[in-house]
């Protein structure tokens, strides 16, 4: 310990680590603690009074006679979140893999530029990106007018504020996270292996499915996690493109701190979401020996 305090390295690293520890690790621990507390009468929480109500209320609600009733409302929101995230992951993979492959086939200077193009939207405001899709998708918007111009009935698109719109927006938002790790693994790929496959009589389909895809597997897995996980926690897209009608987990959590005012329940949901995220990261790290983040 004395050595530690004297070492210069400790004092260099300490501010950042202590800051994150105090303003993030401690709050996360406290959130787990709040999730097992009793809900206060006027919102907030009864500190020090323990209760598992928050976890029970995920599946059961009390009716007027104080009987526990099975309630699938929240389960439906979780199912919708997982379904939309899985769908988004598949869309992102179908679009992202060919794009990553295409980029990896370009000359070096062009590759860097294309990768830069892929990352730019990530740095722009998420509200603005989703708002842009509202302009495109709404009735009387650009796509609707385009269809009308092609001879379809105008005003008949009716896609904004549906799960389809949410899915389009989610795919748009998280697409770069699919391309970057796949590109990173394709870039390292030894092309002699593919040539060898051709020499041994493989056609393109076989070279792709038997050589390229298996070699890109760690990148594909990382991309899938990096799309699926943030998708599960998406707040803005369901709020704007779903019009608040198609809640996902994050919106349910948020509403517990707004009108619903059930902090322990919100904390419990947050804790479940966090546990799920950390668990998938750990499984990935054990399988591929590094965190997906390091691939970016």
């Amino acid at each position: 310990m004395g050595n530690l305090i004297r070492s210069k390295r400790f004092w260099l690293i300490a501010p950042a680590v202590l800051y994150i520890g105090f303003f993030m690790a401690v709050p996360l621990g406290q959130m787990a603690y709040v999730s097992i507390l009793e809900r206060g009468d006027y919102g907030a929480v009864n500190w020090g009074v323990f209760s598992f109500d928050a976890y029970a209320s995920f599946l059961f609600e009390r009716d007027l006679m104080d009987n526990l009733m099975f309630n699938t409302d929240y389960l439906q929101i979780f199912a919708r979140s997982f379904g939309l995230s899985a769908m988004t992951m598949v869309f992102a993979l179908v679009l992202g893999f060919p794009t990553a492959f295409y980029i990896s086939m370009q000359p070096q200077a062009r590759r860097n530029f294309l990768i830069f193009l892929v990352t730019i939207p990530f740095w722009t405001n998420i509200l603005v990106r989703n708002y842009a899709w509202m302009l495109l998708l709404r009735n009387g918007g650009l796509i609707d007018n385009g269809l009308a111009w092609l001879g379809y009935e105008s005003g008949g698109l009716d896609i904004l504020y549906t799960p389809y719109a949410v899915s389009i927006g989610l795919t748009y938002t998280y697409l770069p996270f699919m391309v970057l790790p796949i590109y990173a693994s394709l870039e390292k790929l030894d092309h002699r292996l593919i040539e060898a496959a051709f020499d041994l009589g493989a056609d393109k389909w076989r070279a792709m499915t038997r050589v390229i895809l298996p070699l890109a597997a760690p990148g594909i897995a990382a991309g899938c996690i990096l799309v699926f996980i943030p998708c599960l926690g998406a707040y803005v897209t369901p709020e704007l493109l779903g019009g608040g009608k198609f809640m996902m987990i994050a919106n349910l959590i948020g509403s517990q701190f707004g009108a619903a005012r059930n902090w322990p329940f919100g904390a419990a949901l947050g804790f479940v979401l966090l546990a799920f995220v950390l668990l998938s990261m750990m499984i990935y790290a054990m399988k591929f020996k590094s965190l997906p983040e390091e691939k970016l």
Binding site: F23, M24, P27, L28, M31, I229, A250, G254, G266, G270
Partner: peptide, 20 residues
């Protein structure tokens, strides 16, 4: 620890910080 903020979903960070 240094990349922890990138791993935790935004909404979880938001409510944990609010509670804190």
């Amino acid at each position: 620890m240094l990349v922890l903020p990138l791993l935790v979903p935004e909404i979880v960070t938001a409510i944990a910080t609010l509670l804190f």
